[in-house]
Write a protein that binds this DNA or RNA. Structure first.
Lengths: 172, 172
DNA sequence: CGGTATCCCATTTGATACTG
DNA sequence: CAGTATCAAATGGGATACCG
């Protein structure tokens, strides 16, 4: 990745990309959700090289997404378990998964997402407005926040204008 | 990334990771949401090398997330715009962004996500059960689908048992 | 079992110069 | 402006051997 990325520091997408955007980290998180916990489980099921796995597990533990725990009885037995922060990635995984299934074509994933207590299937992830109404991605927009710097503010406004004129063109 | 990944083929997370998990693609999508459209805009604002940018733009256009359009008047002017599939990544970006802000620490992002029509701030992204109730990640679980292969089924059941016994331990 | 160390090759990346 | 071409450097990845 880039070193001198001007937006790297303060953009949350950039941050999470730096942490999880390496092609393996997200897969490891997903594996943890699917029940893996041991080094060899991750290795076998992902087909990842051992040195890379070591590296990624360390990174994820360091970032607080996994916790490493060795058994007291047998110190050779180690388990990597999702922390609360790691489990909080569930909506991200669902959003990615649903987008993937809709736009990357059918795939026989065979995993259902259900509520533990009731066993009911969960609905597609939603982005809701303040009044709870479901929103389409097309209705959503990024706006400059109160402390946005002028340059970002100008860009967002320009993007908004452009989208607006496009919508007008489409309507006419 | 790995070549012989056993779950690579049919896991939606693996697919989307293969497409967007390279550290730049998601940043480019985000830039497009922020209003960038020209090659040089992406280059300057992301600080990405030109050849890498060329490569990624091609990949994203090929995957149908961006569309490339050259102006009729001046063929040197090219614009990359999000397609419907690209815009459909908005929930993913929001989920990532919200997770990042909550778990990767404070950052002065200064971008608000609002509903275009009303200007209202959108609420945190939600995963809802069939009856519309909001769910916490801890309540969610992956279960084998009807066509899951036996191995995956066994893993998911094991993960479920383990989570169950953990919950019981935590409750006692 | 859960790593670490090492070697080696393939791919990716970044920088820069060049082109239509 | 929007790329291509080229090259050096870094990183990633596979295989294997070794260790507590």
């Amino acid at each position: 990745m880039s070193k001198s990325n001007p937006c790297q520091g303060n953009c949350p997408i950039a941050r999470v990309t730096a942490l999880l955007g390496d092609g393996w980290s997200l897969m490891i998180i997903r594996e943890a959700f699917l029940g893996s916990g041991k080094f060899n489980e991750f290795e076998r099921r992902l087909g990842i090289a051992r040195n890379i796995l070591t590296n990624r597990l360390r990174k994820l533990v360091g970032a607080g997404l996994l916790k490493r725990r060795e058994s007291e009885t047998d110190r050779r037995v180690v388990e990597y378990r999702l922390t609360a922060a790691g489990r909080a990635l569930f909506p991200v995984l669902i959003a990615l998964s649903q987008w993937s299934e809709q736009h990357l074509g059918d795939c026989s994933h065979s995993v259902r997402y259900v509520e533990r207590a009731t066993g009911e299937e969960i609905r597609p992830i939603r982005v809701v407005s303040a009044d709870g109404r479901e929103l389409d991605a097309g209705e959503l927009v990024m706006l400059p926040g109160p402390d946005a710097d002028p340059a970002l503010r100008a860009r967002l406004n320009a993007a908004l204008d452009q989208a607006g004129s496009e919508a007008a063109r489409a309507a006419s």
